[in-house]
């Protein structure tokens, strides 16, 4: 294994992680809920009774770049290299997969691991392994 030290951003990664953790903490302590994005969206699609609360959270996420740009005095918009076909296939897989798994990186990865949930540990190890394997196939076997 070769570490890319030029790309490694330990301080911003840790600081951003703490912010994500604080948001998840505030959500459970104030509202008693898991800050899981796929579950939040799934409940919106299924018109759950608490849909306004879910929509408010989703709108907060969508508005976050504007707040960041305001605070930081600008925003570097990332380049997305994936083709439209890849994005559609990936999006479908992420949508179906997270609903069957009852969670994604936030619900299982952050909240579930914080709760020491065995289900979330299995889910997180599984999607991480699938992610590692997919990038290996795409970049090193096909690429």
């Amino acid at each position: 294994m070769q570490v890319n030290f030029e790309a490694f951003t330990p301080f911003s990664a840790l600081a951003g992680g703490v912010l994500i953790g604080l948001a998840a903490a505030a959500f459970v302590l104030l509202l008693g809920r898991i800050a899981g994005i796929s579950g939040m969206l799934g409940g919106l699609i299924e018109r759950a009774a608490d849909w306004p609360l879910r929509l408010a959270f989703v709108l907060g996420l969508i508005a976050a770049p504007a707040l960041y740009a305001l605070l930081a005095g600008g925003l570097a918009v990332p380049e997305v290299s994936a083709s439209p076909l890849t994005l559609v296939v990936a999006g479908l897989l992420v949508g179906v997969g997270t609903r069957y798994a009852s969670g994604c990186t936030s619900g299982h990865g952050v909240c579930g691991l914080s709760r020491l949930s065995p289900r979330s540990l299995v889910a997180t190890l599984t999607f991480m392994a699938a992610g590692f394997a997919t990038v290996f196939v795409v970049r090193h076997l096909l690429g």
Partner: peptide
């Protein structure tokens, strides 16, 4: 199974729901 599908999609585009 769901986590496997999600992980493949995540690895294809580098994007998860949040």
């Amino acid at each position: 199974g769901g986590s496997l599908l999600f992980g493949v999609g995540w690895g294809l585009a580098g994007i998860c729901p949040g």
